[in-house]
Simulated assay, not measured.
Amino acid sequence: MAIAFLNEPPPSVARRPLTEDDAVDIWIARWLRIRPVDLQRRYACDPRRLYEIWEETHFPGSRKRALEEFQSRFPGLEPRFDSGPHRRIPLAPHPDQLNLFSKV
């Protein structure tokens, strides 16, 4: 099944606030490995809006609804991706790591 994904936002999407249906589609696009920059272009939004959805600070429960929708659209693909919540991985080393190299 081929999925068309527009880089430019359709006229109805351009310059409007994101909805819960958009949040579900953004989750599904993430699991289909659509690049965040393409999602930003499609929904004409700031990248922070995507992370608000993925962290579920905006539209809580959208991940669960998206997973149900994904299973109905693409049966059998669920085990091929991590459907868990978004996790931030800090770039700075953990402060406890500095203890490993100190001379006592």
Rank of each mutant, 00 (worst) to 15 (best):
88 R>I: 04
37 V>P: 10
69 E>F: 03
24 V>S: 03
98 L>F: 07
77 L>C: 02
70 F>G: 03
51 Y>H: 15
16 R>G: 01
17 P>C: 12
75 P>T: 03
4 A>F: 14
68 E>D: 06
80 R>C: 08
85 P>S: 11
30 R>D: 00
40 Q>M: 13
5 F>Y: 12
92 A>E: 10
20 E>C: 13
103 K>S: 15
33 R>Y: 08
37 V>M: 12
98 L>A: 13
33 R>F: 12
82 D>A: 00
80 R>F: 13
14 A>L: 14
86 H>P: 01
33 R>W: 10
94 H>E: 07
7 N>D: 06
102 S>V: 14
31 W>I: 01
47 P>Q: 09
37 V>R: 14
40 Q>H: 06
33 R>S: 10
1 M>L: 10
82 D>G: 01
34 I>T: 14
46 D>K: 06
98 L>S: 14
4 A>K: 13
71 Q>I: 13
71 Q>M: 08
76 G>T: 03
60 P>R: 10
74 F>V: 03
93 P>W: 07
98 L>T: 06
79 P>L: 02
100 L>D: 12
61 G>Y: 06
4 A>R: 08
32 L>R: 04
27 W>R: 01
12 S>M: 07
9 P>D: 05
23 A>R: 02
31 W>A: 02
27 W>I: 01
5 F>W: 15
84 G>H: 06
21 D>A: 15
78 E>R: 09
16 R>L: 13
29 A>R: 01
82 D>F: 05
54 W>R: 04
13 V>L: 13
46 D>F: 10
75 P>W: 00
47 P>C: 00
71 Q>R: 15
100 L>C: 09
62 S>C: 03
74 F>D: 06
95 P>H: 03
51 Y>I: 13
30 R>I: 03
39 L>Q: 06
10 P>G: 07
49 R>I: 05
21 D>V: 10
15 R>C: 09
29 A>M: 03
12 S>R: 14
41 R>M: 09
76 G>E: 00
103 K>C: 14
55 E>D: 13
38 D>R: 12
34 I>V: 15
6 L>A: 12
53 I>H: 01
25 D>Y: 02
29 A>Y: 02
51 Y>L: 12
19 T>N: 06
22 D>Q: 03
88 R>N: 11
60 P>V: 07
56 E>K: 03
10 P>K: 09
75 P>N: 11
85 P>I: 11
45 C>I: 05
58 H>I: 09
81 F>P: 00
21 D>T: 14
